[in-house]
Design a binder for these strands. Structure first.
Lengths: 347, 347
DNA sequence: GAGTCATCATGACACGTGTAACCAAACCGA
DNA sequence: TCGGTTTGGTTACACGTGTCATGATGACTC
C-alpha cells in the first residue's frame, strides 16, 4: 500500500481536516461529513460511524467555521452590535440568556463593535457587519443602523435585522424596552399621591437621550391623561455634584413638589444635594428614581424607584428564531420589558 | 457575443461576488482582487483600477469574510471571551479603544461568550472558539481557559493566547490588572496613618474571588513588610444590608481601627451600617474603598479610595500585535494598570 | 437465474477568495 | 533583427466543507 505523498500528513502545520479524519478511519470524506453532522440523507452503518467518531476524537478534529459558512452561504452568526455597550449586571444577564437560547437553536451570538465612522448613513459599519454574512443582526441602541444599512444587510443575505432598545428604524424589526412606560409608571405614582407639579431630570449627556427623552415623554403623557392642572418641568442636568447643588439651590423658586430623576444614580445625586441645601425628602420634595440599583437602598430615606423587568433571554431567542425563519414577514415591534413602581420612602 | 448561461447574473439571489465585479469591469477576477486589496504583486494600470473600483461601487460589492478566512488560513479575528462580564463603564472605554487599536492593525475584535460547559477542562469552550480560527484569543477573567484549552487553540492555528486580568494560565501570555497592587496601596496608606490592625472585606460571592483574594493578599504583603505588630483580619461579607449591620454590630469587639472594604460599593454599604450603629468614620474606624466610582463622592464623609488607571487600549493593541507576530516568543506577563490612592475624608 | 430493491459508501462539484506561475505585447539597447 | 526587460493582465490552483448523483454489493422476489 503506497503512501500518498500528495496528501499532507496529520502532523502538518495546521489543524486536522475532515480529510485527515477520513484517511484515518479508512473512509471517504463524504462519509465523515455525514457521520459528524448526523445527516439524515447519508445512511451509514453503526460500525463505520464509530470508526469515524473515534478517528475524529483521536485527531482532535475541529471543523473550520469559515469553510462551513462558505459552503452553507451563511455563518449561523447572530451579530449583536453596540456603540456604547450598556454593560451592567442587567445587560450581563440578558446577554448570557440570549446566548444560551440561540445556542440551542444552533446560532452563535457574537458581540461586535459599532465603529460608527461618522456620517456615511451607517454604510461603513454595515459593510463591516455584512462581511461576516451574519444570519441576523441585533443592533443595540445608539448605533449606526439606518434604513440604508438595513437594506444593505438584507441584500447581503442577512435574514433578520432587528433593533434592540433604540428607536425603530424603517426596514428593521424592533425590540423595545419601552422607556416611555417607565416615565408613565413614575408619573402615575406621583399623581396618585396628589402631586400636581413634577420636575423631570434629563441628563445633558446625549448618549442617554435614547432613554431619557422617552422617559420624559412618558411623564408628559401620564400628566396629560390625568386631566388639567398638571405641570411638567424639564430639568437638564450634568452628572456632577456642582450642577446638582445649583439645581437644589434654585429648587424652591421652581414651584415643584416632586422630582422624577431619570434613574437612581441621578436620584442619589439630587437627594444628596437636596439634603445639603436643607430640603427634606419627601416632605419638601418627593423623589422617584428608576432601575432599582442596589446602592439606592442604602439611602435614607430609602429611594422609591421604577423597576424594569427584562424578558427572559430564552423567550427572546425563540422570537428571533421565528424572525429568521420568516425573513419576509412584515416588520414587527415587540415590547420586551414590563415596568412597575417599587414604593419606598422618598416619594 | 453569446451570453454565458453558466454564470449567475448579478441580479441573482445573493450578494455580488468578485466575479460579478470582474465581469462588469471586463477584466479577470484576479485583477479585481489585486485592485481591491492594493496588492503589490499585481501590476495594474491606473485606468483599469478605476474601472474595477467603479464596478465594485455600482454593484455594492462586499467581500465574503468566510471565503477570505478560508483562503488565508486565519480569520483576522481577535476573540475576546468573557464568562461573567464584571465590567462597568471602565471596561466600556477599554473595549472601544482596544477595538480601534486592533482595527488599525487590520484585526476585528469580537466579544464571544464563554459557555463554560462544566468540568471538561475548558475543552468544549475552546473548541467553540477554535472553530472561528481566531488569530488571537483574549480570555477574560473567570472563564474556562485552561492549559489544555490553550494548547488546543494553539494547535488549531491561534497565534496568541492571552489571559486578561485573570490568574496566569500555563501556555498563555498574561495581561494583568494587578489586583494585589490595589491591596498594597490601600494598606500602605493606612499603615502610614498609624493603623496597626486592619480589617479586609472579602465578598462571599466567589465570582469576585479573582479580584478580592489578590487584594487581600496585597494587604497582607504590605503588612508583613511593615515589620511586626500589624494584624490583618479577613472579614467575609454578603452584599446585603443585613450582613453589613451584623458586622457593624460586632465591630467594637474585633479590636480593629481600619477597614479596607474590597471596593467602593462595599465601602458605601459598610459606612452606612457603621453610621446606623453609632460608629464615627474615620474617628472610630477608617474606611478605604477601591475603584473610585462617582457615587462614592456623594458620601459624607467622602470616601478615600484606590484608583486603578487602565492602559490605553491603543498601547495594548500594539502589544497584542507584537505577540501575534512572534507566536513562539517566550510567554510574558504584563502588568497593565497602575494603582494609586485618592485621599479624601474617610480614612 | 434475471430483475428489483435496500444498504452503504464514494466521486465530484460548488461556495468566494488570494496569489504564484505564466503569457502576450510593447519597449529597449546593441 | 534579435534577445532581454518591463508592463499589464490571465489561468489555474488551493483553502475545508456539505451534499447530489452515482455506484457497488448483496439479499430478496418472481
Amino acid at each position: 500500500m503506497p503512501i500518498d505523498m500528495t496528501q499532507r500528513s496529520a502532523a502538518g502545520t495546521g489543524s486536522p481536516t475532515s480529510a485527515d479524519v477520513a484517511r484515518r478511519a479508512g473512509v471517504s470524506r463524504a462519509t465523515v461529513s455525514y457521520v459528524l453532522n448526523d445527516t439524515a440523507g447519508g445512511r451509514v452503518s453503526e460500525q463505520t460511524r464509530q470508526r469515524v467518531r473515534a478517528a475524529a476524537d483521536e485527531l482532535g478534529y475541529i471543523p473550520h467555521a469559515a469553510a462551513r459558512a462558505l459552503r452553507a452561504g451563511h455563518s449561523g452568526i447572530v451579530l449583536l452590535t453596540a456603540a456604547d455597550i450598556p454593560f451592567g449586571p442587567l445587560f450581563n444577564k440578558f446577554y448570557a440568556e440570549l446566548r444560551a437560547g440561540l445556542h440551542a437553536h444552533g446560532y452563535t451570538v457574537v458581540l461586535y463593535g459599532d465603529a460608527g465612522d461618522g456620517n456615511d448613513q451607517g454604510e461603513s459599519a454595515a459593510r463591516a457587519w455584512a462581511e461576516l454574512r451574519p444570519t441576523a443582526v441585533l443592533a443595540g441602541p445608539g448605533g449606526s443602523l439606518t434604513p440604508r444599512s438595513a437594506e444593505l444587510l438584507k441584500r447581503s443575505g442577512t435574514r433578520a435585522v432587528i433593533t434592540l432598545g433604540g428607536p425603530p428604524v424603517p426596514g428593521a424589526h424592533a425590540l423595545l424596552m419601552d422607556q416611555r412606560e417607565v416615565g408613565v409608571v413614575a408619573a402615575e405614582h406621583l399623581l396618585g399621591r396628589g402631586h400636581r407639579s413634577i420636575g423631570v431630570i434629563v441628563p445633558t449627556d446625549h448618549a442617554l437621550d435614547l432613554f431619557s427623552l422617552p422617559r420624559l415623554a412618558g411623564v408628559r403623557a401620564a400628566a396629560d391623561s390625568a386631566g388639567g392642572g398638571v405641570t411638567v418641568a424639564r430639568l437638564d442636568l450634568d452628572y456632577t455634584e456642582a450642577a446638582a447643588a445649583e439645581l437644589a439651590a434654585r429648587w424652591p423658586g421652581l414651584g415643584l413638589t416632586a422630582l422624577f430623576s431619570y434613574n437612581d444614580e441621578f436620584a442619589m445625586l439630587m437627594m444628596s444635594a437636596f439634603q445639603d441645601a436643607g430640603l427634606r425628602v419627601p416632605a419638601d420634595v418627593a423623589v422617584v428614581g428608576a432601575d432599582d440599583v442596589m446602592l439606592s437602598r442604602l439611602l435614607r430615606p430609602r429611594l422609591t424607584t421604577v423597576r424594569q423587568t427584562p424578558p427572559g433571554g430564552g423567550n427572546l431567542a425563540d422570537l428571533i428564531e421565528r424572525l429568521i425563519q420568516h425573513p419576509d414577514a412584515p416588520l414587527e415591534v415587540h415590547d420586551l420589558a414590563t415596568s412597575r413602581i417599587v414604593v419606598r420612602d422618598s416619594g
